[in-house]
């Protein structure tokens, strides 16, 4: 606490400008997501791909500017826990969708 630049937990906390940059980026990405769907300018597959990319970028923007995830040595365990969770959730979602789609094809339910 004696050092005003780092918080007690060792992680950096943002400044007004970094929060504003994050906010503006988030607004632009959100508006683009809505715009892509509302304008019907792309084919359905293209729209879904664009949505996924925009969502991924916005999640990264939020993680960096709002949750202040960094690469400092203090943040090491936070990052390890995060990477494990991302891997776990990816396997969970992709695996579920894959297996259920397969089941559904084999049982000729669609």
């Amino acid at each position: 606490m004696s050092n005003p630049n780092t918080s007690s937990s060792g992680e950096s906390h943002g400044s007004v400008s970094s929060y504003l940059i994050g906010f503006v980026l988030a607004v632009i990405l959100t508006v683009l997501s809505f715009g892509v769907v509302m304008s019907h300018s792309l084919a359905p597959t293209g729209t879904l791909a664009a949505l996924s990319v925009l969502a991924l970028v916005q999640v990264l923007v939020h993680l960096h500017y709002f949750l202040h995830m960094g690469s400092g040595s203090e943040a090491r365990w936070n990052n390890i826990a995060f990477v494990f969770t991302v891997a776990f959730v990816s396997i969970l979602i992709v695996g579920t969708v894959f297996i259920m789609a397969n089941t559904s094809i084999n049982m000729m339910s669609r």
């Binding site: 007690s8 937990s9 365990w77 826990a81 995060f82 494990f84 959730v89 979602i93 579920t96 969708v97």
Partner: peptide
Amino acid sequence: HENTVVFGFWVYLMTDCIIFGSLFATFAV
């Protein structure tokens, strides 16, 4: 010790993330 308070909460958020991941997987199906 002060680090562990926030880190512990971070680990809770990661488990919460898995709950949401399961619900997203259910919704996707």
